[in-house]
Design a protein around this nucleic acid. Structure first.
Lengths: 337, 337
DNA sequence: TTGTAGGCGTTATCAC
DNA sequence: GTGATAACGCCTACAA
């Protein structure tokens, strides 16, 4: 390699010059086309190696129209649930020859719009998005421009493909379990209700309450921000205001752990004073020593299905709508009794 | 917006046609150049909006030579330490108009090489990398092709810019603390010794031992894989083989928690039976209820410095070498006594 | 088997 | 203040 940072990048032209062929022949030799002789291919490859040639995929993309890149747009990459999903999707995408552009929205609708526009501008081949859902104009933007799949959340009366967990069922089994354990004052830390998963988990939870003839108690339902830090103050405030609760069903594991920390700092023990249930089962992938009872769906399956649906749309022009609702289980650990 | 997925994307040409100007004028109107009249700018912007125009940045990149994209290459995005750093860097980069391409290497040297080549091929403007360090040929590849900054690890006798924590000092204060607390049988779960941070943390640890005239005990130093799952079996095995230890110093928080889980599952209590110290202070950003004593450096500062050094190299052609070693503190929580 | 011409969408240069 | 032209690097189509 004689290339170096101060000189300009090596192009096909440089190889052509050195090898004594045309740019075109070099291009096709490197693409291993079968109308080029083996001898030429060998020589061209040698020269390319010698010069340290690396394909300019910007040029390839402009010409070919695809970038072999997928955008993943989500609310909070520092939430282990998301980072696990990203990692799993990245693996599947890489296996198929794609790279991943990660865009964090902080659950901000404006950031989301920028992320989508930027992705379209960069001509990514498709988008995987966990939408903020503050309204659906961003989804319209997607629909008009690029293949995409929603992950974790869905819109109603809409034809977007999505892969979600069975949030209603998850809310139901979590709440039912708490009730069966004798808890009746469940502090429900729900996400914003324009988010489908938050809405459906709450609905499932209410069904379980109604089955036991318990009137869903609105003072025990607190809407919280679902980014890191969203639960701590709410739990502390609820307790200090004298709200009585014997258990907590949190929107996700991260917020469940945050709630436990808040309780501990108030001198309360989990599960002896308060039982806590989360959602996501982060502990299936990360070995944390604070065993949390939680609602679980296969993250690997979720990642795989999402990638497959998207790549089928891109590569096979599949235009059917695919809606996947993954089964959920209750994983019982030591945060409940 | 009349554009839709089935039709081709709107280009400058479409706007030019509709607005009655040349492609060139449209381009410069949209870039707000001052040799275009306000009236024209207004009209062009209106037409662009009406058609739902989104700039093709692939073409812009080919022409201009930059992509406003930075690659972040690291070992394990599902490790909260990395995902926190990614999130922080993403924020700083976004503020400066850059997007982030995330590439996971699973600490594999081969994946790392592919990630670098792919990044160069995609003409990203720069690379932030936590190198696998199995050898330095990948770094040579970077050096020859693109501005980059190492994060978290460094090479010796090398001019690469890097931002790291004071790993030697971190290893020293963690070990010193354990010794002061009366522990003398410290199980040191170290990372592969070709990784600078692993090597330096161990060296710092040994210094503390020697100061107390304790011979560094090799049977109590276990090299582990530093991806999720790397510590669990090692701790269980060490215990079952009858190895005596009263404390653990783990390479990072994730592996420290994993160790605690392993101990708990063996019926051992932390900190009553074994004290455990980690490294990273993930709990400064994520509210987990398992208070871990740990070595801490500012993640925000780390992210910010790394981005600043890189962008200075890119935008201001700064070619001085910048080496930043961040101060560390011991954060004492309940995993030690 | 290899070379020439043209174009992907944008922007810089220069002319008018 | 605006338009024509060329160029970024690559690949497809067609010619030789």
């Amino acid at each position: 390699m004689i290339n170096n940072k101060s000189s300009r990048p090596v192009t096909l032209k440089d190889i052509a010059l050195k090898a004594g062929y045309s740019v075109n022949t070099v291009s096709r030799a490197l693409s291993d086309k079968n109308d080029i002789s083996d001898k030429t291919k060998k020589l061209v490859r040698e020269v390319a190696n010698e010069l340290g040639y690396i394909n300019n995929s910007v040029a390839t993309s402009l010409r070919s129209g695809y970038t072999k890149t997928i955008s993943i747009i989500l609310g909070d990459i520092s939430n282990p649930m998301f980072s696990i999903l990203v990692k799993e999707m990245e693996v599947f995408l890489r296996q198929k020859g794609y790279t991943s552009l990660i865009l964090n929205t902080d659950e901000s609708f404006i950031q989301e719009k920028k992320a989508i526009t930027s992705s379209i501008s960069k001509k990514v081949d498709g988008i995987i998005i966990c939408p903020t859902q503050k309204d659906d104009s961003n989804i319209k933007l997607l629909k008009q421009n690029i293949p995409y799949v929603l992950i974790g959340r869905r819109f109603y009366n809409d034809t977007s493909d999505y892969v979600i967990t069975n949030d209603f069922e998850g809310g139901y089994i979590a709440t039912k379990y708490l009730l069966e354990k004798g808890h009746s004052k469940i502090l429900n830390l729900v996400g914003p209700q324009y988010i489908s998963s938050a809405k459906e988990r709450l609905e499932g939870s209410r069904k379980a309450l109604l089955e036991k003839n318990i009137e869903p108690n609105f003072t025990l339902t607190k809407e919280i921000k679902i980014v890191s830090g969203g639960a701590y103050k709410t739990v502390q405030k609820a307790f200090k205001e004298g709200l009585k609760f014997d258990s907590i069903f949190a929107f996700n594991d991260l917020l469940a752990w945050e709630s436990i920390l808040a309780l501990n700092n108030l001198g309360l023990d989990v599960p002896n004073d308060v039982s806590v249930i989360g959602y996501d089962n982060i502990q299936s992938k990360l070995f944390f020593p604070f065993p949390l009872t939680t609602v679980s769906a296969s993250k690997t399956k979720m990642a795989k299905m999402t990638v497959e649906i998207l790549l089928n749309k891109i590569e096979k022009k599949d235009n059917k709508t695919h809606n996947a609702v993954l089964d959920v289980d209750l994983v019982i650990r030591n945060s409940t009794k």
